[in-house]
Amino acid sequence: MTLFHLGLIINPVAGLGGPAALKGSDGMAAEALARGAEPRAAQRTRIALEHLRPLVGRLEFLTLPGPMGGDLLSEMGFSHRLIGDLPGAATSAADTRRAVELLQEAGVALILFAGGDGTARDVCAAAREGQPVLGIPAGVKIHSGVYAISPRAAGELTRQLIEGGLVRLASGEVRDLDEAALREGRVAARWYGELTVPEEGGFVQQVKQAGVESEELVLADLAAWLEDSWEAGVRYVFGPGSTLHGLAANLGLETTLLGVDVIEDGRLIGRDVTETQLFELVDGHPARLLVTAIGGQGHVIGRGNQQISPRVLRAIGLDHLRVVATKRKLRTLDGRPLLVDSGDPALDAAFPDALRVWAGYKEELLYPVGHL
């Protein structure tokens, strides 16, 4: 039987900055680890590769040694060959680019890579025109249209490709935000190129809508409703994004644009909290979680708000989660469902088939959630 050859690249430090409230991981791995963040890219990749276990005898991986792929493939029992080496103890962007070059020379049918927008930039810098690649989302910033909507979706799409399914190839944009600007509360995005990605059945995410949405009257109405209905002694967790930042501003509260904040009895008790700080604030205490949907994509959990981890979600309770999104923002989804990608497949599966969305003064909508 002819083996299907897949390339695999894992950026071991991808996503470290999210739980540590660093807004990204580029150049911040050491600080994130010092704050207690734990590597998550390998676990995200494992979720994707679980969907390929039934095909273990039909494929062979090519990858770099150690944390960039070799360790995980050995643990999971996949046939693989190591290419290149890792000259230093810590991996680098240069290692990613070199891996892409080696995998292309080996003629792999598809390169799977786990990371965020910084990793996508490195892949884009080295990939030849027409080389199929697919991102496994594992970073903090994932604006590029080259990532599957979840690790499970990446595995499922790869399985379809190996089994001979008719998977269409398309061009996906690589975009990235300036992390230094992010940490100062400014959003500055750039286009870095395009990659060829398999695209089928809604498995690949859309490019994030750019710009700041301004619907001042709706946010003022939502603020009035929330102010009328504060529950005494309940802690309200505000997720990141311009919608919730604007909502808080209408309440006279100075929250962070891109961080997670906690409000109790109308006052800010936690600003730009880490995952650990957030869990300590909500564990065993009545809490409500407000998040918004990323315009054009629909993610409500797992994109830029990794501080809201699986244990935080369980501590608050899924029945206490509300999406805050104007109808204009929901229309940018073109009928696609809201998406959850917490990193815990069992928790994702526990989400209801539809979430309640606050869209205006005393106006709640029911909007479907996608399950993959």
Rank of each mutant, 00 (worst) to 15 (best):
V262T: 05
G302I: 05
G296V: 07
G270H: 04
V312M: 03
S309Q: 04
R322H: 13
L321G: 03
D265G: 09
Q306E: 15
L268W: 09
V260W: 03
A287D: 10
G317D: 09
G295V: 02
D261A: 02
G317H: 10
R288F: 04
I316S: 02
V282Q: 11
N305W: 02
V323P: 03
D265S: 03
V323T: 05
L290P: 03
T276A: 15
I308A: 05
S309L: 04
I316E: 05
I316P: 03
R311Q: 08
T326H: 00
L268G: 08
A287G: 09
H299W: 02
A287P: 10
V262W: 07
E275P: 03
G302R: 00
L313E: 06
V282Y: 12
A325H: 06
P286I: 07
A325V: 10
V323A: 08
R271S: 04
T326M: 03
P310S: 13
T292A: 14
L278N: 09
D283Q: 15
K329H: 13
L289P: 11
R311L: 06
L278T: 12
T326C: 07
I301C: 07
R267I: 03
A293N: 11
L290A: 13
I301D: 07
F279I: 04
G304V: 13
T274C: 04
G270K: 05
G266L: 00
P286Y: 10
G298M: 01
D283K: 15
Q277V: 06
T274E: 09
K327V: 06
L290Y: 14
L268V: 15
K327A: 01
R288M: 10
L268C: 08
D265N: 14
V273C: 08
A315Y: 11
T274R: 01
D283S: 14
L318F: 07
I269H: 02
G304L: 08
V273L: 14
T292F: 14
F279D: 00
V300N: 07
A287F: 06
L258G: 09
